[in-house]
Nucleic acid binder design. Sequence first.
RNA 1: GCCGGAUUAGCUCAGCUGGUAGAGCACGUGUCUUGUAAACACGGGGUCGUCGGUUCGAAUCCGACAUCCGGCUCCA
Length: 631
Amino acid sequence: MHVLLPDGTSLEVADGATGHDIAAAIGPGLAKAAVAVLVDGGIQDMALPVPDGASVSVVTPKQEDDYLYPMRHSAAHVMAEAVLSIIPEAKFGFGPPIEDGFYYDFELPRPLTEDDFPAIEAEINRIVKAKAPFQRSVMSIDEARAFFTDLDQPYKVDQVDELACQGETEVSIYRQREFVDLCRGPHVQDTGRIGPVKLLSVAGAYWRGSEKNPMLTRVYATAFRNRTELDAHLERLEEAKKRDHRRIGRELELFYFDEAGPGFPFFLPKGMVVVNGIQKAIRAELDAMDYDEIKTPTILSETLWHQSGHWDHYKDNMYFTEVDGQGFAVKPMNCPGACLVFRSRRRSYRELPLRLAEFGHVHRHELSGVLHGLFRVRAFTQDDAHVFCRVDQIQEEVQKIIDLTDRFYARFGFENVSLHLATRPEKAAGTDEMWEAGESALRNALEGREYSIKEGDGAFYGPKIDFQVTDVMGRAWQLGTCQLDFFMPEQFNLHYTSADDVEERPVILHRAISGSIERFLGILIEHTGGDFPVWLAPVQVRVLPIADRHADAASAAVDVLKAAGVRAELDARSESVGRRIRDGELQKVPFLAIIGDREAEAGEVSVRARHRGDLGAQPVADLAAHAAPEG
RNA sequence: GCCGGAUUAGCUCAGCUGGUAGAGCACGUGUCUUGUAAACACGGGGUCGUCGGUUCGAAUCCGACAUCCGGCUCCA
């Protein structure tokens, strides 16, 4: 038989040749380095036969992505063996490779902690050193069920049953040394091909991800090709920790959380400068795009939430109160309020599209365990807007929103934006015609842009486009959203008078650019590491007099800067200049203006730019022009 | 909500096996009057998250609760 090699040549091998045979036929060095083979693009074990005529590419550690997957998968098995050797009663769940590493779930007779890591890692290293081969074999469903029942591994038995339900008649198992696991594979040839392993954390995880099932102990770990790459990855994790917005938020005095309000952020003066800067940037866009800003009440009657449908779908996440014996709820969303505004008087087709924007402060009772700094809070400000329009206006409106988000994200230094179209889910409100018209309007609006499609991922009330940005650490964040809503106009019986003097039903377009101001600030902090762009920095210039005799000149400089609209402050503490410069740098102040004898005489300041050092002396007015807020 | 961990001064953390608390930074005062990332000295500051239990005695052991951290789940 023949196989096709990556360089286009054809190689003749014996019938039934395995990946290993093919690698050996190409060269002994390759055979030695090989960990798996790609057969027609799919990865498989070295020991499995390759079909006649297949395209074959031998994977070695040089092919990082193709290598890491089976290697980490194999590492997961080895970790499982190591845990079993330390805790023989352990029961096994799943142990897959994931982005940047792998994990394995265990049911254990005692809690596992990080104190156990060294022992497990030592055992892993012993197994890796043993270079034990991974041996694949195939069992019938019944054999496998009996086998894992015999091993007293209930989760494996459960998985065998699950596979049987899916119509599988046989399953593969992998054995290294005495350890056997149910597994589809592929794996590297032997444990010696596994790179350096590092256990990272231990967490809880439900079996099969359902909270009805038992909670298992999940051990997260990672493995890389070599020590250098592992260390580089661990360093990235450290860097991410340094950029943690919760830490920077405290250090730069932007916000804090108090026990008195779990999940409810307190914004400090400097944090509010940034928040206001973000809002100002959004308002500038609203003005340019003919939005009208409104503000609707935080607390509204329960009857409204019945009408909106939130009572049925969202009650568990809402806060309730009572006013004069009547039930009220704190708004978790702004839509009903906006609908009331639309309905507050008769509307004409001439007003459409009617774009109502609101910085809506909403409260949602999130589960205590999901709270996470500013990323997940219980009260946040949506930069919300509801566009009331006709179906034939959707496309143009959506295009405008896409343009708007482009401009907005770029302004904050997010260059990597991706769009996702989410289409009709199984359970959906509205008619087929509405969904078709809506989805095609969104598709047309996306014309000429790159986007992915998430089939069936739309909300029940309409399709949507999600906007995602990638930060400097390569992490993706969902920010904006643009959702069609066929449901709410019905619920609220909204209508407008058409040109033909008929009552027509508008469509609502929900949209948010930042999603939530709080969350956006958190992401921006981690993206910039606290180095906000000059126009957004809480303090833009800090003026440092060298000695007491320069205090008057320094405070005069502060006055000039402030008059020019610059956020400037004076640091005349009797600390050394070096000390005050250090403090200014640590506080991420974009410009430090230093005034000594030379500068005072010339009416200048010496400017030191954040992270860039001394820029030399210049007139205060020049610095003011530099630092003046653009926003 | 669930699993695991944590909670000691404003912050970061010491405090071994029970004998009523320490450091650095920060803060205050004084001295110094400074030239581009940490001057020096002195001082104030904690009912050891809360409540209860065990004990002659609890920061330390046990329980409940609260909050935080890592995950899971959730995010119509």
